[in-house]
């Protein structure tokens, strides 16, 4: 199929009268690891909530595999929701279920596989993120990094072709973060999973992201699109170069991300 895995068309997002994003447009080709970058308050999370159907944009359309998540209703919406996996920043694991039960949840609720098969499939995903040993523990009993990896395992439960990750490596130690980066890279390389990552962890960005859009609060939208390694050197906007170089060389007034 030639159509993009994700196609964002002139999306605007506003809260009441305050406009957060205006006229945002980009395509994510299949198999790519795509980054949505930007500082705090730039609308990254709002955009992501629109992409996964938790929020309706105030204007524009979002297509997942060619079908609009914005306008889908009923069964079509359910089909779209089940076509991707999403890992939230804080994990969002169900607190009264074990790690294994959390990873198995989509299989339990959405498939009619026998219990042994659901268990095996969930354990396979836990092994993928290196959590086999923690399968029977509750989310409150494991570390923040493990919660994030468990959330990734749950997002992968149905082996989706499209993955949305909100700050997957934020708050992890460098080694765990690097392992997670390697895992994401492998998923996209071996399984062809399209991955959309919202992040401001630049180490991860340069390690795994093929292409990215950079959002800025003042612009209410995209200020740069492209390979972050190139943008870092040659983006036309000084702010973007500075953002990708950890603020080096940019000290003008209003230089923050707002």
């Amino acid at each position: 199929m030639s159509e993009a895995a994700v196609s964002v068309r002139d999306v605007s997002v506003s809260y009441g009268e305050s406009v957060v994003l205006s006229g945002v447009a980009f395509d994510v080709p299949r198999g790519e690891v795509f980054g949505i970058l930007g500082g705090s308050g730039s609308g990254k999370t709002s955009l992501l909530r629109c992409l996964v159907g938790l929020r309706k944009p105030s204007a524009g359309d979002i297509l997942l595999g060619g079908a609009s998540i914005v306008h889908a209703e009923g069964d079509e919406r359910l089909r779209l929701l089940r076509s991707f996996g999403m890992a939230f920043q804080g994990g969002a694991l169900l607190g009264n279920r074990t790690v294994l039960e959390n990873a198995r949840l989509p299989l339990d609720e959405l498939t009619d596989l026998p219990s042994e098969a659901r268990d095996a499939a969930a354990r396979e995903k836990l092994a993928l993120v290196g959590l086999t040993h923690a399968a029977d523990r509750l989310p409150s009993e494991i570390s923040g990094g493990m919660v994030k990896r468990a959330a990734l395992a749950r997002a992968l439960a149905l082996t989706p072709g499209l993955l949305f990750l909100d700050e997957p490596s934020a708050g992890l130690d460098p080694i765990t973060a690097a392992e997670l980066d390697a895992l994401i890279r492998r998923l996209s390389g071996e399984l062809g999973v399209t991955t959309v990552i919202v992040t401001h962890e630049l180490a991860s960005v340069f390690a795994i992201v093929d292409r990215a859009v950079v959002l800025r609060a003042e612009a209410k939208g995209i200020v740069a699109t492209g390979d972050p390694r190139e943008l870092r050197r040659s983006a036309s906007s000084e702010w973007v170069r500075s953002f990708l170089n950890r603020g080096a060389g940019f000290a003008g007034p209003g230089g923050g991300d707002g």
Binding site: L54, L78, F84, F164
Partner: peptide, 16 residues
Amino acid sequence: TMRVNEEVDALETMGL
């Protein structure tokens, strides 16, 4: 608490 922790959102994105 589930709402605040985005657990309800997570269920919704799973189509649950």
